[in-house]
């Protein structure tokens, strides 16, 4: 565990907290993409299957990972529940039209071609990595459709992007300190994922500087 990874994970937790705070305080999920949330649910549930096989108390790290995995899975399920049931009437269904079936299909095909070992567990893991790299796209498209973004929603996406950026620093750190090689899959997808946020970062920082709400062109 290094400071970049810990910082990344903490930003991830903050982003989830901001997401739930936005829904609970405004009693609305306007501006949020249910499709992105569903994709994250799929990502977490295909990647964290090892929860069934790993003893949480094996080491301090597995304990930490287990807590975080359960947190991500449960908060993700809770967010979907809030958007689909309690605040359904505020959900912007008309604009949330990104076709996620194509993303899922593409990630599945890529996972069948590129994986580290030919096992169900490894293919699902690769699938989750591919899918995570594009899971934010429906959210970004929704924002582009509607134009102006609520502050808390833009902070949410900024934290998610920050988490991914810190993970890259973490990998560079581990490459040199632990001499880890052969991680092209996670590194490649992680870099693509971070690049997807680049455009958003630009407009986010611009809007912060001007002290205005974020507007996407």
């Amino acid at each position: 565990m290094n400071i970049f990874r810990l910082g990344g994970d903490m930003l991830h937790v903050v982003s989830i907290f901001l997401l739930l705070l936005k829904i609970q305080t405004s009693h609305s999920c306007a501006g949020l993409s249910l499709k992105t949330q569903i994709l994250y649910m799929v990502v977490f549930s295909t990647r964290y299957l090892d929860l069934f096989f790993t003893k949480p108390w094996h080491s301090a790290l597995t304990f930490y990972n287990t807590i975080m995995k359960i947190l991500f899975l449960s908060s993700s399920a809770y967010t979907i529940y809030l958007m689909q049931k309690r605040y359904k009437h505020t959900y912007d269904k008309v604009h949330d039209t990104f076709r996620i079936q194509y993303l899922i299909a593409a990630a599945a095909v890529l996972a069948l071609i590129f994986h580290l070992r030919l096992t169900v567990f490894e293919i699902l893991w690769a699938f989750s990595v591919f899918l995570e790299s594009v899971a934010i796209l429906p959210q970004l498209f929704l924002l582009q459709e509607t134009g102006e973004v609520e502050n808390i929603t833009s902070h949410y996406i900024f934290c998610l992007g920050g988490y991914r950026t810190l993970y890259i620093f973490n990998w560079v750190w581990r490459y040199f300190t632990e001499h880890r090689r052969n991680q092209w899959l996670a590194w490649g997808c992680g870099t693509v994922q971070t690049l997807i946020y680049a455009d958003f970062f630009y407009y986010y920082i611009l809007s912060r500087k001007q002290g205005k709400k974020l507007r996407l062109p």
């Binding site: 880890r180 090689r181 052969n182």
Partner: peptide, 10 residues
């Protein structure tokens, strides 16, 4: 070997 594949991350 799981250790090599970054599976100790989230």
């Amino acid at each position: 070997e799981l250790k090599d594949e970054l599976k100790d991350e989230l």
